[in-house]
Design a protein around this nucleic acid. Structure first.
Lengths: 221, 221
DNA sequence: GTCTATAGTCGGATAGAC
DNA sequence: GTCTATCCGACTATAGAC
């Protein structure tokens, strides 16, 4: 039987080291990519010993997978509530055209919040890295996060356009709609350089919201 | 004075090795990223000797820059004609609303052609890699390719919405419009998995064209 | 659990024969 | 210009002291 003191210290410190490594991993993998990130960077950013990476995660790859899982959890926490609510309203009840448009708007406005927030860019960079170089991690993102999100948006778009929700046209249309926001994550460097800014401001967020509302209303009204 | 035979053989073989390396570089850097690509992969893909990379390009980084330059040239060839024509019509003459919309449509339809073509994905992957991890190469892309493209689209959008072409709103709006197509390059893995396809078909291209036309017309009419 | 020291591997670049 | 052989540095992972 373990002593209380040991359990405390073990759990607290161990959790601390693991947590710091995952946190550092998000920043370092986002900035340098999987190959570009070295275990030395990761350890020093997390302020833990180099050997802690193999010890806690079995190696660099294990740490990366832990980072992926933490991103999935972050995403599920941030976007699933909205998604699930939309899904529910679609399945039960028969939302009117205006309601459908408002649902779509709400989802998009929510994404804009993520785009312009300070904690999202690193997460988003890792997700887009995985799109450019899909590994096992991309399948996890897709199955546990992106699929449901994409399907719900497709379902809304399909209803608005009177298409089948599994039709090619509905899927492509939904992707284009989502692209209007997503490109601010994937093409972040371009738009920031174009604006002459280091990061997005609250004004940008507001402007984007009105722009997105206008686009959605004009496209679907 | 060099002998004709030597010049011939030098130029032909040297050009051949250089060309093969650049060509292989596009494929390998696209697939694995800059850090992930090794000189050994690059040489073997190009079917040249490992030492040819330092010899011709001064090293891996030099080869990468040559690849970047070749992509800029490719892009200028593929998209500048359309861009320049639009720019000319904007500067001289006073295009009508319908003409502006048609200009925007034409640019977007052209990009759809690039999205669904077979030779573009690797080029696009390298460009989006540079957006996620901007190096010196990103500045080259921006200054010599993306800036003019983005400015022209912004100018068209600004006229349609009666905004100043350097206003935040016009710039963000144009980026969102472009995002509808660009996301098919940046988020290629996602949409292909969603469609259950390995690559885009001619049908996808057609559908996308009609979708994009509808969106643009509804947004700006 | 945490650290230092080090093993073992692979990367890019070079030297020098041809 | 092209090749083989090799160097050197950086990387990840491990062994073993504390």
């Amino acid at each position: 039987m373990r002593k209380t003191k040991n359990m405390y210290s073990k759990d607290r410190q161990s959790d601390d080291a693991r947590r710091r490594l995952v946190r550092a991993g998000i920043a370092v993998f986002a900035k340098y990519g999987y190959e570009g990130a070295s275990t030395r960077m990761l350890a020093s950013e997390a302020k833990v010993n180099l050997a802690a990476i193999p010890y806690y995660f079995g190696g660099k790859e294990g740490l990366y997978h832990a980072v992926i899982r933490s991103i999935v959890a972050f995403g599920q926490e941030k976007i699933f509530p909205g998604i699930m609510e939309a899904r529910k309203r679609l399945d039960s009840g028969n939302p009117s055209r205006d309601e459908l448009i408002r649902m779509l708007e709400n989802l998009m406005l929510h994404y804009i919040g993520l785009v312009t927030s300070d904690e999202t860019p690193n997460v988003a960079r890792i997700m887009f890295q995985e799109q450019l170089h899909p590994t096992k991690a991309f399948s996890i993102f897709y199955e546990e996060l992106l699929k449901e999100e994409h399907c719900v948006v497709t379902a809304i778009v399909a209803r608005l356009l009177k298409l089948r929700p599994d039709s090619q046209e509905a899927i492509l249309n939904a992707h284009a709609i989502l692209g209007q926001v997503m490109i601010f994550l994937a093409g972040r460097a371009l738009i920031l350089r174009r604006l002459g800014q280091e990061k997005f401001t609250g004004d940008d967020a507001e402007l984007l919201q009105t722009i997105m509302q206008q686009h959605i209303r004009r496209i679907f009204k």
